[in-house]
Computed example of a mutant assay.
Amino acid sequence: MSNQFRQAFQRMASQVNASGGGGGAGGGGGPQRAAQAAARSIGALASAAVLSYGAYNSVYTVQGGHRAVVFNRFVGMKDTVYGEGLNFNIPWFEHPVIFDIRTRPVNLQTLTGSMDLQMVTIAIRVLHKPDPNKLVWIYRFLGENYDERVLPSIMNECAKAVVARYNANELLTKRDEVSREISLDLQKRAANFNIILEDVAITHLAFSPEYAKAVEAKQVAQQDAERGKYIVMGAQQEKKTIITKARGEAESAELIGQAVRKNPGFMKLRRIDAARDIADIVASSGNKIYLNADTLLLNLLKDKDEKLEKGGSGGWR
């Protein structure tokens, strides 16, 4: 292109110089020849410009992850979908339209109601792309911004339809099931518009502030009830422990009384056991002291033992 312009300017300059030089010798024919040379030069420049425009617009490149469809001024949209790389077209008569067929995300947030009439705010994220084999139909009926025209409406409708089948508790406990149903419904609806959905996910699920407070109050009440139930169970268990302990002490006292009545030597045996325990404590102590027998409880019940021995076995009958 630059070479053609350079050659055209050189030819025009040479013709102008030639016409100027001849004008001095031949008289009035010089201006006419100069005008003719200028006209030829302008024609050459125009031809070079047309050729350059045609050469530049006769090819186009389709980048990776893209496809192209071509609009022809005579026949309309051509049925061929052009792939990646260098492609040819007729300048001015044909116009290529490039589509990005890579996966793209779109987010939608909508307010809807559950089966138990609770207002729910749900946000959905969809990964989508156009069907590469249906780009001509998409451009003809939807245009390049097909996702903005189709996806918000069908996502809103499918989300509201699915959420209305569940109550508020099930939306939380069956979240995967809700997401799967929304995905199936969206795929069916998007297939009618030749749009492929690769993934559908619920990114946010929130209830009204009033419902959230009611759920929190319910959980707190349940926790208080459970705590109260365990407190009652603990008190009952403690009561049983006290009763059992009292019964044991009563039975123990009764058994001791019976043993004393049947055998007066029982008290002597208990006194000996107590004295042994005291002696062990004193022996293991670091301070060494001397104690008499009374301190060791060896003679603590001496008088009673003597009375029991004088009374004989007849006094206990």
Score class of each variant (00 low, 15 high):
residue 315 G to P: 02
residue 232 V to Y: 04
residue 15 Q to E: 13
residue 11 R to Y: 11
residue 16 V to Y: 10
residue 147 D to M: 02
residue 34 A to T: 10
residue 19 S to A: 15
residue 252 S to G: 13
residue 45 L to C: 12
residue 149 R to T: 06
residue 204 H to A: 07
residue 310 K to Q: 12
residue 189 R to A: 11
residue 173 T to E: 15
residue 263 N to K: 02
residue 27 G to W: 08
residue 199 D to W: 06
residue 178 V to Y: 03
residue 137 W to P: 01
residue 140 R to P: 08
residue 291 L to S: 11
residue 10 Q to P: 03
residue 108 L to A: 06
residue 231 I to Q: 13
residue 253 A to M: 05
residue 161 A to K: 10
residue 210 E to P: 01
residue 187 Q to W: 02
residue 210 E to T: 09
residue 103 T to K: 13
residue 83 G to I: 03
residue 1 M to N: 11
residue 192 N to E: 07
residue 67 R to I: 06
residue 51 L to P: 00
residue 270 R to Q: 14
residue 276 R to G: 11
residue 168 A to Q: 14
residue 141 F to Y: 08
residue 92 W to H: 11
residue 84 E to D: 08
residue 28 G to K: 06
residue 315 G to M: 07
residue 69 V to A: 03
residue 123 A to P: 00
residue 285 S to K: 09
residue 189 R to E: 11
residue 33 R to Y: 09
residue 9 F to D: 05
residue 115 M to C: 14
residue 150 V to H: 00
residue 37 A to V: 05
residue 226 E to P: 01
residue 45 L to Y: 09
residue 10 Q to S: 15
residue 209 P to G: 04
residue 71 F to L: 13
residue 10 Q to I: 15
residue 17 N to D: 15
residue 303 D to Q: 07
residue 245 K to F: 03
residue 285 S to A: 15
residue 19 S to Q: 07
residue 68 A to T: 02
residue 30 G to C: 06
residue 270 R to W: 04
residue 74 F to D: 12
residue 135 L to C: 09
residue 272 I to V: 08
residue 278 I to R: 05
residue 29 G to V: 09
residue 205 L to Y: 02
residue 211 Y to P: 02
residue 159 A to R: 01
residue 99 F to L: 07
residue 164 A to G: 07
residue 145 N to F: 07
residue 284 S to M: 06
residue 52 S to V: 09
residue 64 G to T: 15
residue 89 N to F: 03
residue 130 P to W: 00
